[in-house]
Design a protein around this nucleic acid. Structure first.
Length: 295
DNA sequence: GGAAAATGATTAT
DNA sequence: TAATCCTTTTCCG
């Protein structure tokens, strides 16, 4: 999935390639036909993200709210002004790249026939975007957008996000920090990869209770999350390992060297050599180093 | 050709 | 905790 960094990349992508343009909106799959009709022919005026929520605003004061869920993804195509991302969302290829390389150099001749289950297709003059498999895709009002955001914790990718607010929300609760990092009311945008990786980087046991985490530890955790997620936005990939913990200086960083613990059960810890452990927490797979993260 | 897994979250029991 | 939703890719027979 698409953790917060992917959603912010999408907001940026929509702003740069579609903002200010009149869009043809349709639902080739048919499941979003009514919503598409409300937006069809309108101009995109904004594209913003909060945590894993994406909001596309139109000139009739309606917004499209999208949540990609576990495997939703956008595909993009068009002429050279669309240069860059051709796919953002759930990984579509081995290698975990969110950005696929441009395939052909042929002139742009409009969007291709929809392939598979395309919930929404957005078409502008110079390019198009297809959305598949989202958990949520609905037309809402500005008031409804505000209500959605009000229920979420601070988003580490918002420049003005408040570290103290995160610390307060974390330290108020009795649950394990491994669960709290996935709770979007505590902070918005962290998912299963970042939770495991950041806990390792901060040498925190996933079972430490929120209320037992010291203020400075919470602040340090936040600073690291901000840093690592901004890297994710910049690179279009989640890479959390430091160069000194990789085998060589290969670029781009190979998939198997991008993480400390995520999806590395029974492999040696990059820092201490202990076998990485795996279990389930919050109905999701959790990975950690029993030695580095003893407490 | 079918099952399982995947960066998620809500609702029901 | 378990069931449910949404779709594609990967792996196994």
């Amino acid at each position: 999935m698409p953790e917060g960094h992917s959603i912010h990349r999408l907001a940026r992508q929509f702003t740069s390639v579609f903002s200010g343009q009149r869009l043809e909106v349709s639902s080739p799959q048919g499941r979003f036909s009514a919503g598409a009709a409300q937006l069809n022919g309108h101009i995109l005026t904004s594209a913003t993200a909060h945590g894993k929520q994406l909001f596309l605003g139109f000139d009739n004061d309606l917004l499209l709210r999208i949540h990609l869920g576990l495997y939703g993804a956008f595909d993009f195509g068009g002429d050279s002004s669309f240069l860059g991302a051709s796919s953002i969302g759930a990984p579509r290829k081995v290698g975990e790249r969110e950005i696929a390389s441009d395939d052909d150099g042929a002139a742009y001749a409009g969007p291709p026939a929809p392939r598979g289950a395309v919930r929404v297709r957005l078409v502008a003059e110079h390019g198009w975007a297809d959305l598949r498999g989202p958990t949520s895709c609905e037309v809402i009002t500005e008031a409804e957008r505000a209500a959605v955001v009000a229920r979420l914790g601070p988003d580490p990718l918002q420049p003005d996000a408040d570290a103290a607010e995160f610390a307060a929300r974390l330290r108020r609760r009795a649950s394990p920090v491994g669960l709290l990092l996935m709770n979007q009311e505590v902070l918005a945008g962290v998912g299963n990869v970042y939770r495991a990786e950041v806990l390792f980087r901060q040498a925190l046991s996933p079972w430490r209770l929120g209320r037992d985490i010291r203020e400075e530890e919470a602040k340090a955790l936040w600073v690291d999350i901000v840093s690592v997620m901004n890297d994710g936005v910049a690179q279009g990939r989640i890479i959390t390992t430091l160069p000194e913990h990789r085998d060589n200086g290969a670029e781009p960083v190979p998939r198997e060297e991008a993480h400390y613990v995520y999806q590395r059960p029974s492999l040696p810890c990059r820092r201490c050599g202990t076998a990485i452990a795996g279990t389930e927490m919050g109905a999701r797979k959790l990975y950690w180093c029993p030695k580095c993260q003893a407490r």
